[in-house]
Design a protein around this nucleic acid. Sequence first.
DNA 1: TACATACAC
DNA 2: TATGGTGTATGTA
Length: 467
Amino acid sequence: MSASDASRARTRSPRVKSRSPSATAWTLGRAAKTTATTAHHHESVPIRESKRFEVPSETLMKRMGGPSDGKAGLSGGFRTEEEINQILYEGSKGSKFLEDQKRRDKDTQAKVDKLRGILAKKLLEARGNEEACADAILAQLEETRDLSRVITLVDADAFYAACHQLEDPSLAGTAFGVGGGMLTTASYEARRYGCRSAMPLFLAKLLCPHIKSLSLKPELYTRASKAIFSILEKYGPIAPASLDEAYADMTDYCANEGVTPAEAVARMRAEVYETTGLTVSAGVSPNKTLSKIAADINKPNGQFVIDPTAEACQAFIRDKPLRKCYGIGRVTEMLLNGLGLKTVGDIYKHRCRLYLMRDHLPFRWLLSLYLGLGSNSVKRAKRGDRKSYGAEKTFHPTSDRTELDNMIKRIAKSLAKDVARSEFSGRTITLSIKHDNFQRVTRAHTPGRNIWIHSYQDMVKYGLELL
DNA sequence: TACATACAC
DNA sequence: TATGGTGTATGTA
């Protein structure tokens, strides 16, 4: 029937307050991820004439650009977004991946229809006080506004690509990507052709035949990341968000040095460049939400500062497409589009219907987004904060039980190693299988409230049972 | 607790 | 020919 399973096993454990003497690893654990596959036979269906004229939906085409599409703006390219998506669509035609994308698109469309149905009904029962209710919540949220901090998001430009370019300056100005089968990063030159992160190499080559692909060198990135973060730390407490991104609270630095946020961040960026050779972009504002969006504005090697006034914050975010906001992905964007919203400003315009739909949408969160509010807490995650560990591997489709068993063992081995290193232990182990049609199923097992999973043997035992 | 989704990078 | 890996959060049953 269906093919290819990927399995993924992990242990999870709910957060446990360590009241017990063992201060170490009461935290949480998670185990292995595996990926296996089974053979897939599907009859070849003759293409009917009518099929030839089938036109992909607009939303499906939007998917073609990859998951990061719409988040980062692309400009100055050789092709339009439509041309790029068309090439990617042609290159993906007939693939199981595309079929899965179609399925997802359809599912989301169904959600949109359902939501619109609910809205239609709610509109009939509307009491007329929705605007007042929404405005009251807005006023309440406004009370919480805190403009006292200087919060910066620093984001390295084309980080992996830049790291390689430092090693090999001859790469400068050339089209290259980092990653074997899948690109983790595309150089700026490659981006002009439409190549993006998370794009498979074979598609990137359709867009840019001369693109060069470099293998990943993880040590290169972790070293560069540490170098960048240690500089940021001189300017205030930081909270890394990934290898190439960190928030910094520069309030005290600005006060102590008597400089404006713009000046402080310019110094920081210059220092990063001088000592690492890497350029970073930054956004500055009173909170993390706004700074994150702002960091994108003058990328690469630029910065954007939002003044610490309610007016500036609201004016900044009002015209931004919803998709630019952290937390709004493809699905949420489509749902909100379905209700008539495109930009953050539309949240206010449509606050009545959003109020009516408050049981189905994160209403207050959307209102605070409109106001340009957000957290300004910059705290480094602690060691024990981790909730899970996982490992996964994709392999060629197979339904051979021996092969699958071996894959489980291989993944368990890698996971057990990670877990051992961190002295982590988990109570729930989850096996996740990705079939060759990209559907995923997960199966979990919790042996007992006080039973902790951490050994390779246990992972294999439970993993094989779950398969 | 189990499972599926959504999201970020 | 061909679309990754790691982790968090949340809704629902």
